[in-house]
Amino acid sequence: MDKAGKVLAIIPARGGSKGLSRKNIRLLHGKPLIAWTLEAAKSASSVDRAILSTDDEEIAKVARKYGADIPFMRPDHLAKDDSTSVDVVLHALDQLPGYEWVMLLQPTSPLRTAGDIDACMEKCLEHAADQAVSVCAAKQHPAWMFHIEQECLIPVVQEGSKVTRRQDLKPTYALNGAIYLTKAETIRQSKSFLYQPVPYRMPKERSFDIDNELDLYMVDALMKRS
């Protein structure tokens, strides 16, 4: 694959997860959650190097058993609740210069495959875009979503709020958190993964984002059935 530059994949895994304690090393279908993303990243032909960015020694120890490349430990100020993924990526690029592309692969998306990673890169190159993100069909159309103010339902969006048939609504998509791809220079300048990205569509069955105990249980059950 001609990527017009080297691609660095970053797997972020801080120790202080809140929604599901120690989620990155919780077992999922017989392996730590983080192992699924490590294996997908290492198998993707579009990735030149895949690294783990973590502040946590236990996560690092577990990840190394699955071949994780950990060239540095993330500093504490980039592992707080308000630390951003962009800051983590920029820190990694400063530590490892020479990459034209960078890909963020969150370990909470264990059903994303190496094929998805490569297809996302292909989509970006096909459209000569600087960025691409993975999306899936939205579970709920925003036309049927509301705020509640003084016990009154206020439409989140006015357009289509009076539509009563689902088939009359335009398809909508949501970020599924699985893949964020950008040129290194673009994220340095924009400080965002969402600076006019092209969408890479993923099916719902591979778009689970594990945030709590129920998510982990559902994905584990799904994997056992497949």
Rank of each mutant, 00 (worst) to 15 (best):
P32G: 08
S17G: 10
I51E: 06
A92I: 02
D56C: 15
H91A: 00
K31C: 08
M103R: 00
A60F: 05
K65W: 09
D76P: 07
A35N: 10
D81Y: 07
L90F: 00
A92C: 00
R74K: 12
D81A: 10
S83D: 10
L52A: 04
R49K: 15
G98V: 03
A63F: 01
D76E: 13
A44F: 11
I10Q: 02
S83T: 12
A9M: 00
H77R: 09
S21K: 12
P71N: 03
D94V: 10
L52R: 02
S17M: 10
L20Q: 01
Q95Y: 03
L78P: 12
V86H: 00
E57M: 10
G15Q: 08
Y99W: 08
D94E: 15
I51Y: 07
G16L: 12
A41C: 07
L8G: 04
E39L: 14
P71G: 12
P97I: 05
S46N: 11
L93D: 02
R64Q: 15
K18T: 13
R49E: 14
L78A: 14
L8E: 00
V89R: 06
G16H: 14
L27V: 12
I51T: 11
L33I: 07
K65Q: 04
V102S: 00
S53I: 05
L20S: 08
A9H: 02
I34P: 07
K61T: 11
K61P: 08
G98L: 03
E57W: 07
D81C: 08
D56S: 12
Q106L: 06
D69E: 12
R14E: 14
A44K: 10
K18R: 14
D69I: 05
Q106G: 01
V62G: 05
G67K: 10
P71C: 06
I10M: 08
G67S: 11
G30E: 06
H77Q: 11
D87G: 08
R22N: 12
A44P: 11
S17P: 05
S43M: 08
